[in-house]
Amino acid sequence: MIIKRTELSWLERMYFPTLWSGLRVTARHFYDTLFRGGRVTMEYPEQRWTVPEGYRGAPYLVKDAEDRTKCVSCQLCEFVCPPKAIKITPPGPAVDPTTGNVEKRPREFEINMLRCIFCGFCQEVCPEEAIFLMKDYSLTGLSRKEMIYDKEKLLSLGGVHNDQIRKWKKKEAEAASQEAFKPE
């Protein structure tokens, strides 16, 4: 396309219209910023983004409604994790009497947040719905060690997941009904 360049008028060659429009634009922005809340800056540490639904932030562990760790230490997330950020120590043969009928729970569960790429594979692969990518996007620490989140930290950050299915409750009930079943 050939752009036709119009001759500038005498006034335009004197820069006056440019000066005037420049002054108008800057004065308008000045006034807007000062008096009409036209400020676009978000003052970050104090004001934060509300992230959209489905945002993939940091992965945390959750507890169920009965305050039990949902994770059963199956290690699928550890296996699927592309950057190998998750490290699970399984409980071994020792049985924890406080866990009720839940067969296993992790002895230690560590996520190295410096390695994590927030891909969400762990959440996707988890059969127990025990790990979720939450909305935290600014993880900071003063040392590398501090950035390896252990089980307590992950659980306290993750909070409670009010699961409707209640798998282990159901299993408990089933087991109880098995006990109560008396063949005639």
């Binding site: 922005h29 000062l34 400020r39 676009v40 800056t41």
Partner: peptide, 10 residues
């Protein structure tokens, strides 16, 4: 400060 105000900043 003035440049910030002209550019809708803080």
């Amino acid at each position: 400060k003035l440049s910030a105000l002209i550019q809708n900043r803080v």
